[in-house]
């Protein structure tokens, strides 16, 4: 699979990553080599079974109210907070 710089930039955008032009070249080479390797899966006969990737073990909890960590504790590790709120840059001018 051929990966060009535009495609790397597009994937980085989807992944919320900002890349320098040197990084784009670096990842272009690496992704091309890795995606070339994983294409060997084409050689495996595909079964008709549809795989969902969901775990076979899924236990459900009872729907009961439990105490949670609380707002004061929740913001304690925030890089920027105001009272019990997370602080973010202004969105509406």
């Amino acid at each position: 699979m051929q990966i060009d710089a535009h495609m790397v930039a597009q994937v980085a955008k989807l992944a919320h990553l900002k890349l320098s032009s040197e990084e784009i070249v670096y990842y272009q080479n690496h992704l091309e080599s890795i995606l070339g390797y994983v294409q060997q899966l084409d050689k495996m006969a595909q079964s008709q079974q549809v795989a969902t990737g969901e775990s076979e073990i899924q236990s459900e909890r009872e729907d009961v109210r439990r105490p949670s960590v609380g707002a004061e504790q929740a913001v304690i590790q925030a890089p920027d907070s105001s009272g019990t709120f997370f602080q973010v840059p202004r969105i509406i001018e």
């Binding site: 994937v11 980085a12 990553l17 900002k18 990842y27 890795i34 995606l35 973010v88």
Partner: peptide, 20 residues
Amino acid sequence: LYLNSRSEGFGKEVKQRIML
């Protein structure tokens, strides 16, 4: 802020695997 924080915080291999 999202883009810069993630790009400054993650290392090379992690960025590669996230993109893959």
